[in-house]
Simulated assay, not measured.
Amino acid sequence: MQLYNTLSAKEREALLEEAGEERLTLSFYQYAKIGNPHLFRNHLFVAWDQMEVLGRIYVAHEGINAQLSVPAKRFNEFKTFLDGIYFLNDVRLNIAIEHDLKSFLKLKVKVRNKIVADGLNDDTFDVTNKGVHVNAEAFNRLIEDPDTVLVDMRNHYESEIGHFKGAVTPDVDTFRDSLDLIEEDLKDHKEDKKLVMYCTGGIRCEKASAYYKHKGFKQVYQLEGGIIEYARQVEQKGLENKFVGKNFVFDHRRGERITPDVIANCHQCGEPCDTHVNCANEACHLLFIQCESCADKMENCCSPECVEVIQLPYEEQKKLRQGIPNSNKIFKKGRSEKLKFKK
């Protein structure tokens, strides 16, 4: 029984290009009590590998978080499979606005302690006691209310390229950093303010809404389906679009354009730009914003030092990637001291 990938990303990329078949990029999540995440993980891998599904999926005792690429011709088969799992029957699927054959190049199903890392160790906290879900229309009405505080539950590098007008955008690196920060900032308004939250697809808000209810907030709301579903509803129903810029996504596309506005800047030259890239030096792999001009000049690297590295023979580059300390730069997410125009 095959329980792991047998093809490299490059091999898979070549096969996808050769096939040229339409694929759908989508995501979903569900908080549920999974008794044996490892067994469930293997069940998913075997079934989805046969369906040619690719993506990144996390399974834990608290549920599942999935970001996938599915062959369009097998979507109904995929949906039938999900509906056959009791806690995934009719689960909301966030279909991407833009589709790309190469959004994912491998099928990775991993067991984690939690599907959203929160740093919480509180046995009295019930993640299923969530806030009120609102659609795009209700969301637009809510955020016009002067008694509403709108909070972006994403990280700084996500909100930097796009966010809702008037939203509080915490300058944080991780979801766990934002939980205590927001509670402290709004501690005097647990009774009188409406706390409205949004994120990419809803999974972080789901946990955050339950957390803030647990902490005593009385009026807690979340945008159902996140920015992805909001953009779809706005277009379908002809609603006013209150989001500006680009929506950061966690696949090879790194972003979906929601409006033409470019609200960020190239981290190297300061010119308007909202294109996230990873440094071409694999020993660095820093995520940052880079315009086409700087990409050409810097050979897709974040710094002159990294440009020097990529000129080295491949085996020497591999040696530079060895060791945990050398991989830590990836977590800076655009905060490297080598970037002149970082946020």
Rank of each mutant, 00 (worst) to 15 (best):
H99N: 08
V109E: 02
V111Y: 02
G84D: 12
I85E: 08
D90L: 01
R112T: 04
V116E: 06
D118M: 00
F104W: 05
L107R: 04
K106Y: 00
R112F: 06
N89G: 03
R112H: 15
I95C: 11
V109Y: 05
I85Y: 00
I85C: 07
V109F: 00
G84F: 12
L101F: 02
R112M: 14
L82P: 14
G84I: 14
A117N: 11
E98Q: 00
I85P: 05
N76Y: 07
R92F: 12
Y86T: 14
N89Q: 03
S103A: 11
V111E: 08
I85M: 01
F75H: 00
L88I: 08
K102Y: 14
N76W: 09
N94I: 02
K102V: 12
D123M: 08
N121I: 10
H99T: 03
D83K: 03
V116Y: 06
A117Y: 11
D90E: 15
V111G: 12
D83V: 14
V109L: 01
D100F: 05
D123V: 14
I85A: 01
N94C: 05
G119I: 00
I115W: 08
G84E: 11
F87Y: 15
D123G: 12
L88V: 06
D83R: 07
D118L: 02
N89D: 10
L120N: 07
K114N: 03
L107N: 02
I97C: 13
D83F: 04
L120F: 05
E77N: 07
F87W: 10
N76E: 06
K108L: 04
V111Q: 13
I115D: 01
